[in-house]
Amino acid sequence: MSVLARLRKIPFWSWVWFILGVLYFILPLYATLDFSLRMQRDTLGFRSYEKAFADPQFIKTFTYSITLAIATIIASIILIVPTAYWIRLRLPEARRIVEFITLLPFVIPAIILVFGLIRVYSAPFKIPFTDVVLLQSLTTFKFGTNILVVAGYMVLGLPYMYRSVDTGMRTVDVRTLTEAAQSLGANWLTIIVRVILPNLRAALLSGALLTFAIVVGEVVLASFLGVPAFGPYLFLLGQHRAYEPAALSFVTFLLTWVAMGIIQLVTGGQGQAAGAH
């Protein structure tokens, strides 16, 4: 069947809803783009983009956020992959409670998370009933604060990361694969490195990209912990300037879309492969 013939088979109302949906997403984006291109009166141009990119604060906050995002992704993978793996393998009964925990960030606003972090970690941690300090107050030095921010972002990214990893593990049936590898003499390290991780590539990538998108745009956590991140920068910029924030928003949008495209490319390829049975 030709593509055209296939398209014709789609019912009329499906088309209507589809087009409405596309307009809903595209129009604001188009408006932002259009606005960002009109910094100079009566001509379309990239002036606002040039100005935005030229701001040293932009480079600084953007690289900082990207670094945070990468740290968050690595830490999340190290925490979540073994956890999800162990639950699939040995603790299926713990699954529901862990799933519940991973959904909490959807229910509890980030503002509560950040105040909790500040309350707990702004005082030095002592062994109870003594004055022996186990852990310095994390909010008082840069590296400590960075740890808090990354930990907070891990929580925010948890629903996405856990879900994609867990789904990935279900689709490849890690349990049976693990047993097959074991019966062929493989130890845990070999199994994880050569069997589990390679088969989770698509899942890890999609989890990582979603986490990336969250971290780069996040405002609340970053501003309350006072770190020079991209989210608060964009927010501030929005209060003083008109065109540059539009330009940067559009760039962020574009980045997210490129990320989605990469997910589609990687997982879509696999989906086709699986469908070939």
Binding site: V172, D173, T176, E179, A180, A181, V195, N199
Partner: peptide, 11 residues
């Protein structure tokens, strides 16, 4: 061991 679901390594 041979499994019902084959369990070949997809990668």
């Amino acid at each position: 061991m041979v499994f019902q679901a084959y369990a070949l390594f997809p990668n």
